[in-house]
Amino acid sequence: MSIIETKDLTYVYNPEMPGETRALDAVSFSVEEPCIIGIIGHTGSGKSTLLQHLNGLIKPSSGDVYIGGECITDGRKNLADVRRKIGLVFQYPEYQLFDETVAGDVVFGPKNLGIADDEVDDRVRRAIEMVGLDYDEVAEMSPFELSGGMKRRAAIAGVIAMEPEILMLDEPTAGLDPAAHKDIIDMIKKVQSEMNLLIIFVSHNMSDIAELSDRVFVMKDGRIVMDGSPEDVFSRGDELREMGLSVPPAKEIAGRIKERAPKFESKALSIEGLAEDIQKFRNIKEKA
């Protein structure tokens, strides 16, 4: 049984009005195993609209979404239950922190679920530690005293404390400094492996997509036009550039080397991997 599945999901903003936009156009996919899925696509390709359909925030114009085999779009399912199971971290979620303390913010979701107080406290502590913050240090701090990266993590902790079965993040690293950026990437890996859940994230950062994803969806004009491993997707650089996307820097540099030295081969998506391949290539050349 699939964890999540869509069939011909279609959504039109402002139907039959000026500004009518077909944001999703017959999107179908299915995910069977917990893993990390990365979504890329030009601005306006429908990525954020898709995420909002997957947790029932938007009702499709046509087509359906299935969670654990159950249809959530036929009007019979309680959408509050769906949203509890499928956590969505919006873009720049730190703007939605509102409580006087970090713990107060994180506790908000689970408390609304009607969970017993001591269980809530446990969850909040676990969620805060899961995102790599020190509970004793930050719990009573004001969210406004945190750095940008810490705020982002606190906001993500609020969603994790709901213990969702699927976690979705829209542009989780946008606007973060390099150190905070790396922390969030490491955090996503850790959450996936420790909680063994399905994570779906959207990003314009090709290196993040390459580093994190087990599977990549490429969206263009409301459709999924590629669906494959990062290696497969990023081997189609010309098609990606055609639609306003790109490949990770390592891949681009490798491509340039290959243009001038056709014997050079590298599948590396990281700078580290590329460095190894170049080193090998140079050793072989030296021997020859």
Binding site: P178, K182, P249, I253, A275
Partner: peptide
Amino acid sequence: AGLEMPPVIELRDRL
């Protein structure tokens, strides 16, 4: 400074 090397520089230094 909490920064990182640009990819070109990182590769340069690794090599």
